[in-house]
Amino acid sequence: MDFINALFTQSFLRQALLVGVLASLAGGLVGPYVVVRRIGYLAGGIAHTVLAGMGIAYFIGSSPIVGAFVCAIVAALLIGSISLSGVDQEDTLIGALWAVGMAVGVLFISQTPGYNANLMSYLFGNLLLSSEGLVKVLLAILVGLAVILWLIHRPLTAVIFDEEFARLRGVPTKFLYLLLLCLVAVTVVLLLQAVGLIMVIALLTLPAALAGHHARSLAGMMLIAAIAGSVFTIGGLALSWQADLPSGATIVLLAGTGYIISLLSRRLIRRFTA
Score class of each variant (00 low, 15 high):
E90P: 11
G55A: 01
V231H: 01
L183F: 06
F3D: 02
Y259P: 07
T9M: 09
A219C: 10
L179D: 00
L210T: 15
H214Y: 15
L29Q: 08
M120L: 03
V159N: 04
L78P: 00
A76T: 03
V74R: 06
I201F: 12
D162P: 12
G31Y: 03
G28R: 12
A208I: 01
L107G: 09
T173Q: 05
A202P: 13
G61W: 08
I261V: 14
T205V: 15
L123R: 01
T233M: 13
P207R: 12
L119V: 05
L127T: 02
V137G: 04
R216V: 09
V184P: 09
S130R: 04
A47Q: 10
T92W: 11
L142I: 13
I56V: 14
W150K: 06
S11L: 10
V252G: 14
L119Y: 02
I60T: 10
L42W: 11
S110A: 13
H214E: 05
G67P: 06
T187F: 02
A255E: 08
L18G: 07
P113W: 05
G235R: 08
A23D: 04
G144W: 08
G61M: 06
L151T: 02
L197I: 06
A99N: 14
L192A: 02
A166T: 09
I73K: 03
L204Q: 14
A117H: 08
S247R: 09
L97I: 13
I109Q: 04
G236V: 02
Q193Y: 15
T92F: 15
P172F: 10
S262W: 00
G28D: 12
L264C: 09
G125W: 03
A26Q: 07
A76W: 08
L245R: 03
L7R: 07
L78Q: 03
A249M: 15
L127H: 04
N126Y: 13
A255Q: 10
L263K: 11
L192W: 05
E90A: 12
A52I: 01
Y115W: 00
A16Q: 09
Q15L: 13
I234S: 11
G101Q: 01
I73Q: 05
M102N: 00
L17M: 15
A146Y: 04
L151D: 05
I148R: 07
L151P: 04
D2T: 00
T49S: 11
F161H: 10
I60C: 05
Y259Q: 03
C71V: 11
I56M: 09
V147T: 06
